[in-house]
Design a protein around this nucleic acid. Structure first.
Length: 447
DNA sequence: TTTTGAGTTGTTCGA
DNA sequence: GTCGAACAACTCAAA
């Protein structure tokens, strides 16, 4: 009787359903050690909300495994081989990580494992179509979403992986999940695979039909709210796409397209890892940015005097999450009204967002800044007041997050001007800053 | 190789 | 209030 042993190293795949890497491990081995490594290099820049959410996911996973999950802290290149050797594993199975840090880390781990004769086996990725698999006929990556989307649809994806029966190894000690970092009074989403399923099921029943329009309404909460779960792999996009396959309608199409945006940005970053830090479009290296920390602080704290901007920034601080429409508004405000570098905003988002994902975050910021792939035309500058009136027509979203404005009824809450006690005057004049932004763009275009 | 059509999410202004 | 045009040109994808 063979008694092969394998390690399933969990990273961004904190679930048990639709898990091809886990299935692969069980096909190859009789016994599997579940492992998670708390890596300070990833956790330090993450910020308290995302770390707390991660801990929650780990606790849920450990519970569902009856405690049979090894959680260690340290450098994966040391900890993974150590754990594998302790249980006599002949292979380590993972879901491929396609982001810049993860790919480098995995190379180092695989190399260490190889020294001990342990196989490194990647199965699947956090995407329906693994980054790098969709390319133009000439082999080059797509730079335009719509073209990518068509090719991505043509390529298609696997069905969800079948359930696996696993004989999980009992680790030497109980999972050591550290205490949560202090998140104060923040109200974070409920972590874990079960919560993800609940959110998804409810969205399928109530939200999908008019998702195409409702997702733009921060006052209604018509988005899927799945982003934190996708970030940590509590649910896989393939699972979602499978559920959409036999449904029709504008909502279905819109959601499929949003999922594709996530995959597009992962693909872009896979081809251009430098885009996580620098302008994708090098011409933007010559744009003049300000470096005013006073306005930056006002933006971070939600004290700009523009109601919908402040509501969004405060939602981020209160929930570790911000509505997608409002993310665009506050990002546009930082870049085009305050003339601050997009990476300042991106870093702040990454610190607070529970769903903070390097590819989606950085490339969406670059899209707003105009420096990314398929970027917004430079003259497309959001007017925070117009956006507020259009997408939060009754002002409910603003009043929810900006208590100083609760005395103003209806959409008048968006009007700059009459400021109640305690609420700041607008820190800049939008009409003026819009012109400044346009001028700076023009200067770059015609040097 | 050349050509053609198209490209996430807006705003403002004037009729 | 509603509507269409202007805002710029450029690059990309595909024929």
């Amino acid at each position: 009787m063979s008694t092969e042993t394998a390690v399933l190293w969990f990273r961004r795949d904190l679930r048990l359903d639709d898990h091809p890497a886990l299935l692969h491990a069980t096909e190859r081995a009789d016994r599997v050690l579940g492992l998670f490594v708390l890596d300070d290099r990833l956790l330090t820049p993450a910020g308290a909300p995302r770390v707390a959410f991660l801990h929650g996911c780990l606790r849920e996973l450990a519970d569902r495994l009856g405690g049979r999950l090894l959680v260690v802290r340290g450098d994966p290149a040391e900890e993974v081989p150590k754990a594998a050797r302790q249980v006599g594993a002949t292979s380590v199975h993972v879901t491929a990580d396609c982001a810049p840090y993860g790919t480098g880390r995995d190379q180092a781990v695989a190399k260490e494992l190889a020294r001990h004769g342990i196989d490194w086996i990647e199965t699947g990725s956090p995407y329906a179509v693994t980054p790098g698999q969709v390319s133009k006929p000439d082999g080059e990556p797509y730079r335009v979403f719509t073209a990518f989307y068509r090719a991505w649809l043509r390529r298609g994806w696997h069905s969800p992986a079948r359930k696996s029966t696993v004989d999980w190894i009992v680790p030497q000690h109980a999972p050591e999940i550290p205490d949560d970092p202090d998140v104060g009074a923040m109200k974070l989403p409920k972590p874990g695979e079960k919560a993800a399923k609940r959110v998804w099921k409810r969205f399928l029943a109530d939200g999908l039909g008019d998702y195409d329009t409702e997702r733009d309404r921060p006052d209604h909460g018509g988005t899927t709210r799945l982003s934190p779960y996708l970030r940590w792999g509590c649910v896989h996009p393939r699972t979602l796409l499978a559920a959409l396959a036999d449904r029709r309608g504008a909502g279905v199409q819109a959601l499929r397209s949003e999922i594709a945006w996530r995959e597009f940005h992962a693909d872009v970053l896979w081809h251009r890892p430098d885009a996580a830090r620098r302008n994708y479009d090098k011409r933007f290296d010559h744009i003049a940015y300000d470096s005013d920390h006073t306005t930056f602080d006002s933006w971070r704290e939600g004290r700009t005097g523009y109601p919908v901007v402040d509501a969004g920034m405060r939602q981020l601080l209160a929930e570790g999450w911000m509505h997608n429409r409002v993310r665009m508004i506050v990002a546009s405000f930082l870049v085009k009204d305050l003339h601050l570098p997009w990476w300042w905003g991106a870093r702040h988002f990454m610190r607070y967002l529970v769903d903070g994902d390097i590819a989606s975050n950085q490339l969406n910021w670059q899209w707003v800044a105009g420096s990314g792939t398929d970027a917004a035309p430079y003259f497309r500058i959001f007017n925070p007041t117009r956006q507020g009136e259009k997408f939060d027509p009754q002002g409910d979203y603003v009043r929810k997050y900006v208590p100083e404005l609760r005395g103003i009824a209806g959409k008048a809450v968006h009007e700059p001007g009459r400021r109640p006690e305690g609420y700041p005057e607008p820190i800049v004049d939008h009409a003026h800053e819009r012109q400044v932004a346009l001028d700076r763009f023009n200067r770059v275009k015609r040097p």
